[in-house]
């Protein structure tokens, strides 16, 4: 156990820790430095301009976020419906357009890659948490 004694001296982490104590933390303080008592309340205050939100880490140029859809150009070919791995897209027969359930979407971007008319795009929006999986924000049509 004397080897244990030698070993006790070797703690390479301690100098690093003492240095880090005086450096900036690495955490990004999104959406606020400390958890607000109510997150929804905090977001409401932000929308009223009463509180400032700390920005999230920037997304890269080709980020795959919430899907966007322009029904004008859509020809209703339903290729996207066929190819969607998550069965998140359905064809609305009356209008020959599609409806996308974002709560089901897995953000693979396969449909936007193959849409012959370029009607589907991935946006950089990723804050999609919701209490209702069929809320207006989570159905794109």
């Amino acid at each position: 156990m004397l080897e244990c004694g030698d070993a006790m001296a070797n703690l390479p982490m301690i100098p690093e820790l003492l240095k880090q104590l005086f450096r900036q933390p690495a955490t990004n303080t999104f959406p606020a430095k400390y958890l607000p008592p109510s997150v929804t309340g905090f977001l409401k205050m932000v929308s009223r301009g009463e509180a400032a939100i700390h920005p999230p880490v920037a997304t890269p140029p080709e980020f795959r976020g919430k899907i966007t859809y322009e029904p004008e150009g859509c020809i209703g070919c339903s290729l996207c419906v066929k190819i969607c791995p998550a069965h998140a897209i359905e064809l609305v027969n009356e209008t020959k357009t599609i409806r996308i359930y974002v709560s089901q979407c897995i953000f693979c971007s396969q449909c936007t890659d193959m849409c012959p008319k370029g009607s589907l795009k991935m946006s950089d929006e990723f804050l999609l948490a919701d209490e209702d999986r069929y809320s207006d924000n989570l159905i794109v049509e």
Binding site: L17, L18, Q20, L21, R23, P25, A26, T27, T29, K33, Y34
Partner: peptide
């Protein structure tokens, strides 16, 4: 937390 580069509670 600060030593671990976190902000902490």
């Amino acid at each position: 937390a600060h030593m671990q580069a976190r902000i902490g509670p």
